[in-house]
Amino acid sequence: MNMSISPAKIMKDAYARLSDTLDNFIKGGTDFEKAKAIVPFFYYFLFFIAFTHLEGLNHTIAEGASGFTPRFPLFWAPYVEYGTVVTLVFLTWVGTSLLACLFPYIRTVRIFAFVGFLQYHAYVASFGQPNHQWDHWLWISLILVFLPGLTREPSVETRRTFSLVFWGAQAFLLLTYTMAGIGKLTYAFIQFSQGQAHAFSPDAGALYAATQLNLMQETVPLAGIIISHPWLAWLPFLILLELQTFALVAAFRPQLHRIWGFGLILFHIGTFLTMRAVFTAPSALLLLFLLASPFAPEKKKWNETLSSIPLFGRLFQYVTKRIESGRNIN
């Protein structure tokens, strides 16, 4: 008897299980209606951000081209005067995102919106290291290009595919947080093995805050209390590790979408108030794609929600079962 299981079979089985999980909540019914209603708001936000950035056009041009090394999407930039490059990038972004506000369900328009934002994203990334807080917007604007075209009465297949692509944007957003969590866990074990402070240390949060603020020579409202009482940041930091590492798991559990979206928004607020880490751009996406998730159940069953939290859900289930069996005996 052949007992070996090939990696390919494991992956195939995993894909089948996850696929079945998706099929359970991607129905093409109210989930489709909600997803369809949310999509234009992505472009409304995108336009708003583009327009507010337009305010800084003159200042950006005046700062000059020092250090400007165009990324590949700006292949045309070397042939054009720098001020014109900046103007074209900003105006294209504004124009294409506005067009997408008007016609969000037309694929060609969504392609233009993606290309318009890609120009801006590439421009910002052309001065050394990219500013990653705009990465989610870039990739989600690409994912949304693949939303299927809608007729007056789309078929169930089309509706399901629409919902699925929307879910793909959710999954990508959550994947990035999982990757961040994996990074923190990996280095936690490395640092622990080297006898250094690590992510599970009680003073980890305080060390991050103090180091960052010393470097920037700034302070923020919660820095003082966290640094004076490092233990205060310990539990929030552990919760953050849970939120980040298991974010992609939450993508497959719609009852967790809202709580994860809320938790991640709090994370970004918290890192700003403790260490002045500015990462505001993903917040709008967390609102649109998670807090307003079309797949989250209408009626909240707290038992089910808490039971489905990775790792702690099992503990919660165990405790509630013990309490129930104690009641039954009585």
């Binding site: 990219p130 990653h132 990465d135 990035t176 947080y177 990757m179 961040a180 990074g183 923190k184 990996t186 280095y187 936690a188 640092q191 250094q196 402070a197 690590h198 992510a199 240390s201 980890a204 060390l207 991050y208 103090a210 180091t211 880490a277």
Partner: peptide, 11 residues
């Protein structure tokens, strides 16, 4: 991007 941001706790 790897999203490995602030992965090492400062000493």
């Amino acid at each position: 991007f790897s999203w490995f941001l602030f992965v090492t706790v400062p000493p």
